[in-house]
Amino acid sequence: MTFKTRLLAVAAGLALALPLVLPTAASAHRGWLLPSATVLSGEGAWVGVDAAISNELFYADHNPMRLDAVTVTAPDGSADKVQNPAVGKYRSTFDVQLSKPGTYKIGSAVSTVMASWTQDGQVKRFRGSPEDFARQVPAGAADLKTIKSFNRNETFVTRDAPTTTVFAPTGKGLELVPVTHPNDLVAGEAATFKFLLDGKPAADLEVTFAPGNSRYRATPGDFKVKTGADGVFKVTFPEAGMYWMNAVVRTGETGRGPGGPGGGMGGPGGAPAPATPLAGDGMSASYTATLEALRP
């Protein structure tokens, strides 16, 4: 048993008494999509993308990212192909052919609903897509509690001149609006971005930046900025390189701790525990992107 799994087991054991321990331990790992290049020229351009979940950026040393939800959006807004996908021990990898000029979006946008309700005197639990929720959870269910989450993780690559079609907001979850284009970033220059939450400016949102190559530094070098009332923030990338950007909005119940994601699913190695209801309603939205700042 590694130190980490011991810690998780201890945390799980303490979860009833200390519900705050588990979220901290469970949310430390970072999901990322790392393109081989973000600024390209010419008709024959391709990029390779590594996708993984790890602590250090960008070192694949923990888990591969599942590619089921990863999609490619071409500069004209049409869906393009994930090519040559493979899932390895620590990382997934795939290629994208930039057959059209402009900016491509590569990533996932996943909507999840967690729910509990009472049916025939028993607590029922659900976790899945909004579509399955609508199908499987009876309308007007008694004691219905839901926790809805919307998680985006993406990166952008541009062949020739940058375009903005792939940034058209959908009004769902946290979305990035490019005031400065994400493929037009240069170390030492201020860049401006805007965040929307469900289509409206995401005010007072804390945005974390974590530079890559952290293995070669004594300190990770993460820094935080905040959006204003208009959802806009400015950031200056101190050095050229790849950066992991992340922001999270959460209200109400997290669904972790008692009656959390594992509620009613049974503990590791144990008999299935009776389902426990969610403590209340909640929502969360997260946004993650990998951005590259080039040398001046």
């Binding site: 020229s41 037009d184 001046p296």
Partner: peptide
């Protein structure tokens, strides 16, 4: 292989300010 255009981006200042909007 690439009609030379693959490496035009390596002249990075020119590429950002002028080259990327030109056709070759």
């Amino acid at each position: 292989e690439d009609k030379g255009v693959k490496w035009l981006k390596d002249m990075r200042q020119w590429w950002r300010k002028a080259g990327r909007t030109m056709s070759f």
